[in-house]
Simulated scan of single mutants.
Amino acid sequence: MATEIQSAGKVVVGTDCSNRADKAIEWAAKTASSRGYPLLVVSVLPEVPLPKRTRAASALREGTDYVNQLREQVGKKLADIADRVRGYHPTLVVETALVQGSAPLVLAQASKDAVMVVVGARGQTAPPAVRILGGTADQVTSHAHGPVAVITDLSEEDHGGPVVVGVDGSDESKVAIGIAFREAASRHVPVRAINTWDFGPYDAFNAEIWAASIDEMAEDLTSMVNDLVKDEAAKHPEVAVQVDVVRGRPEFVLVDASKKASLVVVGSRGRGGFAGLLLGSTSKHVLREARCPVIVART
């Protein structure tokens, strides 16, 4: 079974065909439909299936190869998913793909030419070990070559809320700005561009000294964010823009903003991230804790 899929120009969503994956599929279908792109629903079978012994014994007694049996079952579920999506979005082109391999690898490879890759995640409801070690969503966002949307169990869109984008001047945040404006335009909502600052561990002891320059610093940062968003704002004059410079840790500020947002867009790593860093601490935290869908941008 092949591990490559035809993902060019499509919104790609991964699924294990469980009910828990429905939220990601529904979000991906809505996004693809509103943007006019085909939707590709992908399920990946492991390279070495590990069935329960009873099921394996049953399959052997029936003379049926377990892998082929599994492919048939998953194929039927994918067809049902596609039919359900078409029912909600009659004009949407919906395709399915069933491949064998590593799910994170297949989806990360798809991100090279897909419009976007969408994955579900357990977020705050995951066991501590899963949240620490990461799962498919962590691996895909870490190794992707393009934007990845992560839809956690707690993702609830405020449909009238803004698209929130974290802006720190990094190359990744510049890509995130472009994505934020496109998504806001398709949703007919404003963009809220957020930059954060805080006292460092040593500066806190000299807070009184810094107090006199806080207003000036906030003005400089606001000017910087306005300069960074102005080109995209000119491309999308219909999108209102709100710039906020907020004191606080970026991960906490963005998660708080997610509670009243339709979407959060962050760079895969911020200005402080070193060249080999796959996924920064801010994006990791936002992916797990955000209360709305999150798109991770990559250069």
Results as ranks from 00 to 15, higher is better:
Met1Arg: 07
Met1Cys: 08
Ala2Tyr: 03
Glu4Trp: 10
Gln6Cys: 03
Gly9Leu: 11
Val11Pro: 15
Val12Trp: 02
Val13Ala: 01
Asp16Tyr: 06
Arg20Cys: 04
Arg20Val: 14
Asp22Met: 12
Lys23Gln: 14
Ala24His: 00
Ala29Gly: 05
Ala29Ser: 10
Lys30Asp: 13
Ser34Gly: 13
Arg35Tyr: 02
Tyr37Asn: 13
Pro46Asn: 12
Pro51Lys: 11
Ser58Tyr: 04
Glu62Gly: 07
Tyr66Lys: 09
Asn68Glu: 15
Gln69Cys: 09
Leu70Ser: 03
Val74Asn: 09
Lys77Arg: 15
Leu78Trp: 05
Arg84Asn: 11
Arg84Phe: 05
Val85Lys: 00
His89Lys: 13
Val94Gly: 13
Thr96Ala: 09
Gln100Gly: 14
Ala103Gln: 08
Pro104Ala: 12
Ala110Pro: 08
Val115Trp: 03
Ala121Gly: 15
Pro128Cys: 05
Ala129Glu: 14
Ala129Arg: 14
Val130Phe: 15
Leu133Pro: 06
Ala137Glu: 08
Ala137Met: 03
Gln139Thr: 06
Thr141Asp: 08
Ser142Asn: 09
His143Tyr: 12
Gly146Asp: 02
Pro147Cys: 06
Thr152His: 05
Asp153Tyr: 03
Ser155His: 07
His159Gln: 12
Pro162Cys: 02
Val164Leu: 00
Val165Trp: 09
Val165Phe: 02
Gly166Val: 00
Asp168Arg: 05
Gly169Cys: 07
Gly169Pro: 01
Gly169Met: 08
Ser173Asp: 03
Lys174Trp: 00
Gly178Cys: 07
Pro201Ile: 14
Phe205His: 11
Phe205Ala: 11
Asn206Val: 11
Ile209Ala: 11
Ile214Gln: 13
Glu216Gln: 11
Glu216Leu: 12
Met217Gly: 08
Met217Glu: 09
Leu221Gln: 13
Leu221Val: 09
Met224Ser: 13
Lys235Thr: 03
Gln242Met: 10
Val243Gln: 07
Val243Ile: 15
Val246Tyr: 06
Pro250Phe: 01
Glu251Ser: 15
Val253Asn: 01
Val255Ile: 01
Ser258Arg: 10
Lys259Gly: 14
Lys259Cys: 11
Leu263Gln: 08
Gly272Leu: 00
Gly272Arg: 09
Ala275Glu: 06
Ala275Cys: 00
Ser283Gln: 06
Lys284Tyr: 01
His285Gly: 04
Val286Pro: 00
Ala290Gly: 10
Arg291Met: 13
Pro293Asn: 09
Val294Asp: 02
Val296Gly: 04
Ala297Lys: 06
Arg298Pro: 01
